[in-house]
Amino acid sequence: MYAQLVETGAKRLKTKEEMSPEERDFQEKVDAETKIEPKNWMPEGYRKTLIRQISQHAHSEVVGMLPEGNWVTRAPTLKRKLQLMAKIQDEAGHGLYLYSAMETLGADRDEEIEKLHQGKAKYSSIFNYPTLNWADMGAVGWLVDGAAIVNQVVLQRTSYGPYSRAMIRICKEESFHQRQGYQILLDMMREGTEEQKAMVQDAINRLWWPALMMFGPHDDESPNSQQSMAWKIKRKSNDELRQMFIDQTVPQLEFLGCTAPDPDLKWNEETGHYDFGEINWQEFYDVLKGNGPCNRERIKTRKNAIDEGAWVREAAVAYAEKQKQRAQAA
């Protein structure tokens, strides 16, 4: 999941009786699966929660370009280079679709990005891990995009129209990302040298747990989860999504001939799901708080790009203004 721990502002869920007529009308629409559109009345909490969630999702796409950008100049073949470039470009595009959806809620893109650069906005914890070898490009596509897709497929049915439509578009375009990643790993495992195979296992060892953390902590009875579910901004619990991901991923892992760094991972005949070990939540919270391996570098790179580009954007505005004046004078 690209959005983790989204604050809703709710202390507890309101009952129907406690709601204002507008709120009740709104909740009924949501319950009836009618999409909420920008001009519809919506509770302020709903609007703010969406802005937080969508911006977090958008920031994740944009920051997510960096760990892959780290290898785009070193891709080993022309084909792999082109695929990786197309994938990274999609990520920038998906960030833009999401910011565009967010702006329909009255939020300003530049302001939200500024919050990111000041360290006040979150983005997915996964992108604070380094990409250390080429197989990471495979593992990121397979595990990270795989985890994101599990979540995003569900989010296509989210209650806010523009967010839902952005998700539909993103899911359609991202279908190749995960396959692309898996194929990188599969080709190396099948036809690669011992060194390449070791690279693959190393990448999986490092990215396995962080990928599972992407879904966020256990769903407790927290008002935030309950409120997001009631508003249908969120449609499935973190644990449900994580289990779905593990169930679909483990057979793929076995097919690769690799292992997960989890001794407790095994099929449970009774539940019909894979059991797995406990996630190191301390690490998760540390990374969210800024203490991941790459938090500083990621934000610094993004901030520099935008700060150093200020004169470029200003020049474009000045030129447009001059052109307009010339057109009026003519």
Binding site: L66, G69, V72, T73, M85, I88, T301, I306, V312
Partner: peptide, 19 residues
């Protein structure tokens, strides 16, 4: 141009440069 990945002066330019 690949070296500029993630470092363009505007998000729209990321798309254009990578194109």
């Amino acid at each position: 141009l690949c070296e500029l990945c993630g470092k363009a002066p505007a998000l729209e330019e990321e798309m254009a440069l990578m194109n």
